[in-house]
Design a protein around this nucleic acid. Structure first.
Lengths: 84, 84
DNA sequence: CCATAGTATACGCGATTGCGTATATTGACT
DNA sequence: AGTCAATATACGCAATCGCGTATACTATGG
């Protein structure tokens, strides 16, 4: 899994969904790991704006992901290199 | 401003606060730009877990930041420094 | 086709959001 | 010390969270 950019909730949700599937987890399995309901995972992945930060961070850590905050890249080509 | 890693809400809040200050904005100015109250910006920067995703994304875009999701690096920069 | 796993959606609940407004508290500078 | 800007907290409010539980919908394989 390569680094992916999220500029809104929808993109973030989509990234999480891909990551979860790649980890071969169902929403329910993921939810059990982090003590969130399957319905809550569903809302997170759907990109609903009002889900809470803790929900996001819990999902990220269960999927072994981390967040990087950086200035917006103006070039369309993602310069993932400068993360390393 | 260089890319920064956030693995929890507190780190995320701290990053946002630094970015806002570097942009020479007060919480109130930032809040006005994104139609959030100064008090809400305060809670976000304090790392309160229950603030909403939309609040985070709004602040990021106002600060011209973006989110990158990537697999956790085995050791964070600070952990590496701790080795020396 | 159809069964079944997986996902989305719904109900009532207590808790907490962000809101407007207002007030403490803190910090930086003279 | 004293002043003023910046930040943190508080009140009541409507809205919405995530909860437990349960049920619709949607795929995908048999």
């Amino acid at each position: 899994m390569t680094a992916q950019i999220a500029r809104n909730e929808k993109q973030l949700g989509a990234i999480l969904r891909r990551a979860r599937r790649q980890a071969d987890l169902t929403q329910e399995m993921l939810g059990n790991q982090i003590h969130l309901r399957q319905a809550t995972v569903s809302r997170l992945e759907a990109g609903e704006p009002a889900v809470q930060l803790s929900t996001l961070m819990a999902a990220l850590s269960a999927l072994d992901l981390e967040l990087v905050v950086r200035p917006r890249s103006k070039s369309s080509a993602t310069e993932i290199e400068d993360l390393f």
